[in-house]
């Protein structure tokens, strides 16, 4: 029974959101506001149940792992951002987080730059590797703006532009697929779960 009511409410809200495609209307406004409210209302108890209770309350108060009071206090210090007088206290946990992020810099450099550079420097064993090499070089040339894009240099940068256009086209094609997939997900819900097609 509860599940059926849930499906009907979800179907009503889905159709209310879709009604915006015709024009703005009170149903859409209602669903939009409800969505924002529910997102917050859903997140806070979930955070309390899955984060605060198992990682703060239970370890400190039940298992007496008092060392965890330090990170808990650092977490509370974030809230001082809302005070003009005590706002400076929020900087300390922020600095701590930045330090942790800094820890990842060498490995990020390795994964995102060095390995990628290495894979662009392979011997031309097949035509695809040559194409990758050509694309990398010509696009880098395009983004070098201290030299005019004319003559032979301009011809290379043109190839770079073509590479980028093909890349944008591929991304756009994938984006269309992603957006249609989301619509498909909703239509599947309406047709199979709500209207009962395929059962």
């Amino acid at each position: 029974m509860i599940e059926t009511i849930g499906i009907w409410v979800a179907a009503f809200l889905t159709l209310s959101i879709f009604s915006f495609l015709y024009k703005d209307n009170p149903f859409y406004k209602f669903a939009e506001h409800l969505y924002i409210g529910v997102s917050m209302g859903y997140g806070i108890p979930l955070m309390y149940k899955l984060s605060f209770i198992p990682f703060v309350y239970k370890p400190i108060f039940k298992m007496h792992e008092f060392i965890l009071i330090i990170p808990a206090l650092m977490g509370i210090m974030f809230w001082f951002r809302f005070s003009r007088k005590w706002g400076w206290m929020a900087r300390y946990p922020m600095v701590f987080f930045m330090g942790i992020a800094g820890m990842g810099v060498p490995l990020s450099m390795h994964a995102s730059v060095l390995v990628q550079m290495r894979s662009a420097m392979l011997p031309w064993e097949n035509f695809n590797i040559f194409l990758i090499f050509l694309g990398t070089i010509t696009i880098l040339m395009y983004f070098y703006f201290s030299k005019a894009h004319t003559g032979l240099y301009g011809k290379f940068t043109k190839i770079g532009i073509w590479y980028m256009m093909i890349g944008f086209g591929a991304s756009f094609g994938y984006t269309v697929m992603a957006r249609i997939s989301l619509l498909i997900g909703r239509i599947q819900f309406l047709m199979y779960d709500w209207l009962g097609f395929g059962h």
Binding site: Q116, G167, A170, S171, Y174, T175, M177, A178, S181
Partner: peptide
Amino acid sequence: ITAVMAADTYP
């Protein structure tokens, strides 16, 4: 990953 991100993963 979602299709939007797929092109970015090929490298």
